[in-house]
């Protein structure tokens, strides 16, 4: 919106600073701690190529003789590898940073895809109703009756068989985003549809129709902003779920190949060495995964409390 010459509307920052959201954040130390950890993890993961001492994808930087070195607090560790090394001699810290990056990219990518499909379908189903609603919601039911794992196995197998393992490794990230994104869109569609049904009967929607706005404009500009709170809340849950799904798929060998490990494939790669005493290869990426998902879930919990109008009157 353009600023008038006569007035200066309050800036977005001022609005945010005075908002209930920010007020509640200031008074909730769990949310603050989670937010700080989340920001640190995300920025560390995104900055992995600069933070990590080696590039675990580049085999020329890896020394096989340094394999299975323990983390720094155990005797026999090497100062070069603060969190030890895995069975191939890769620096654990570096692989975890890179792995978290892959996990987060897949998690966010899949959720964005879910949201795009789910929100659009939910809006259409809720606003147009009738046959469109029935069709889209049955589609959602059918989609939900396939488990993510099953879809991933089928799609992955077909893709590998058609294009070969090398092409699969190249496009694995994209493929996982597609699989997890397509498998979970009904969550969004159902939530959005329910809120749209509630919003549609409100008078401002009638008023918008009286104003002569088109259906598309009413849906995306008038109704959608009023359904954002539940969308935000399920987004946090969905990001955590997508990261776990990806880890599960990779752990089963259906996700990221070990040459481009995500947290899930790191856990899997160390699994064989668990009994030989090299527990850190599995446990460290596992701990990172747990903390990441926990932090996201706690933030989502806080957000749900803030955005649920039944819990406060503002």
């Amino acid at each position: 919106m353009s600023n008038a010459t006569t007035t200066t509307p309050p800036t977005h920052w001022a609005r945010f600073r005075d908002s209930y959201l920010f007020y509640s954040f200031k008074h909730d130390w769990i949310a603050q701690v989670c937010f700080v950890i989340f920001v640190i993890m995300v920025s560390a993961a995104l900055l992995a190529p600069w933070l990590a001492s080696i590039n675990p994808y580049d085999l020329s930087q890896v020394f096989i003789l340094d394999s299975e070195l323990p983390p720094f607090w155990i005797d026999g560790s090497d100062a070069k590898y603060p969190l030890g090394t895995d069975a191939l001699g890769r620096d654990m810290l570096s692989t975890i940073l890179y792995g978290a990056r892959v996990s987060l990219i897949i998690g966010f990518g899949a959720v964005i895809l879910q949201a795009l499909i789910g929100v659009t379908f939910g809006l259409l189903a809720g606003y147009l109703g009738g046959r469109v609603d029935a069709f889209l919601m049955r589609l959602a039911d059918i989609q939900l009756s396939f488990s993510t794992l099953m879809v991933a196995i089928i799609v992955g197998a077909v893709f590998k068989a058609t294009f070969g393992g090398a092409t699969y490794s190249e496009h694995a990230v994209l493929l996982l985003v597609l699989i997890i994104g397509l498998a979970e869109w009904p969550q969004y569609a159902r939530t959005v549809r329910a809120s749209v049904l509630a919003e549609r009967s409100k008078e401002y929607v009638d008023a918008a129709r009286v104003m002569g706005f088109r259906a598309k404009r009413i849906m995306f500009r008038h109704i959608l902003p009023n359904t954002l709170s539940p969308i935000f809340v399920i987004s946090t849950v969905q990001i955590a779920n997508a990261i776990i799904s990806e880890a599960a798929l990779s752990f089963l060998g259906l996700g990221m190949p070990e040459t481009q490990p995500s947290l899930g494939s790191l856990i899997k790669s160390g699994f064989d060495y668990l009994q030989s005493g090299s527990w850190w290869i599995t446990l460290l990426p596992g701990a990172v995964l747990v903390v990441l998902v926990l932090v996201i879930n706690l933030l989502g919990d806080w957000l749900r409390d803030v955005m649920n109008p039944r819990l406060y009157k503002g």
Binding site: K202, Y204, D206, V210, G212, F213, P225, N226, L228
Partner: peptide
């Protein structure tokens, strides 16, 4: 749609509900 709002407009009962809250 060109007539609605443009040539014929409407005022509703409840001003609390008629404006979009967001």
């Amino acid at each position: 749609q060109n007539i609605r709002g443009n040539q014929i407009s409407m005022i509703f009962q409840d001003p609390m509900m008629t404006l979009n809250p967001v």
